[in-house]
Design a protein around this nucleic acid. Structure first.
Length: 261
DNA sequence: ATGCCTAACAGAGTTAGA
């Protein structure tokens, strides 16, 4: 089975590219972030025409997360909002069941600048995420869990095109990285890094100054998987084609394939 | 060429992204 996660930076603007992804990869699960759509404007009909059903948490112009799956195995909403986050109304967390899999689509706050209130809220979000991940894994036992999305943190300097330039800025601080490691320590595996220990695996490139073609990227999007799912991973990679061409997102989709359980 | 930022809201310029 195939699982994808993609920060689309507006589902409205990205709908043609999303439909292309669905047609090309026919994923069994898709986690979307930054849909930036109001609940009433979510393109359910267009997705249904492509054979996909959605569970989404939409809050208007910012953030917004969704889980898509084929209509024959439609996602079932479990929860929206992350217990303990500073503002659960921002639409950064949604949980759904897809078949035997528990799926979370998450968009961690950017944090803007170290020392700000939004940075503190980002740290709180990571702490709440670790608590919730631990609870889900405990509840689920051997049944699979996938926590996917834009985590807005570079796990190590391998994930940064110019670590020296990022020294002291958000996304690389010990506070953020330490909290991310605590999320992983609940029992989740960083799927891309697990299969590709030495490749950067960038998922985001600044729109400005031709960063994409200069290969100046960051790895901020992740597929985190429970132990049973980690054991079934057969591939994990970034489809860079979706960062090219007409009206791309600034993120490329991250995809993984699993052997059947 | 993979290419020099994009999107929402508004109706210009601000806010946000990372």
């Amino acid at each position: 089975m195939k699982i994808a996660t993609w920060n689309v930076n507006s589902l409205k603007q990205r709908l043609p590219r999303v439909l292309a992804l669905l047609a090309q990869h026919r994923p069994d699960v898709v986690c979307l972030q930054e849909t930036k759509t109001g609940a009433d404007a979510f393109p359910e009909a267009e997705l249904a025409e492509a054979g996909y059903a959605a569970v989404h948490y939409s809050a208007g112009r910012w953030a917004g997360v969704a889980v898509l799956a084929p209509v024959g195995a439609a996602p079932v909403e479990v929860a929206r909002g992350l217990p303990g986050e500073v503002d659960a109304g921002e639409a950064r967390w949604v949980e759904a069941d897809v078949g035997d899999l528990r799926v979370v689509s998450v968009y961690v706050p950017n944090g803007r600048a170290v020392g700000t209130d939004t940075f503190a809220a980002k740290l709180t979000f990571f702490e709440a995420m670790a608590d919730r991940a631990a609870a889900i894994l405990d509840e689920r036992g051997d049944r699979g869990v996938v926590l996917a999305g834009d985590l807005n943190v570079m796990r190590s300097d391998l994930d940064v095109y110019d670590p020296a330039a990022f020294a002291g800025s958000t996304h690389v601080t010990p506070e953020e990285r330490g909290r991310f490691e605590r999320v992983l320590a609940t029992g989740l595996t960083d799927a891309y890094r697990h299969l590709h220990p030495d490749e950067p695996g960038y998922t985001w490139w600044d729109y400005r100054a031709g960063h994409f073609h200069k290969k100046l990227g960051l790895r901020i999007d992740y597929l985190l998987v429970s132990p049973d799912v980690a054991g079934r991973l057969t591939s994990c990679g970034i489809d860079r084609e979706y960062r090219k061409g007409s009206k791309p997102s600034d993120h490329a989709p991250l995809l993984a394939e699993l052997a059947l359980a």
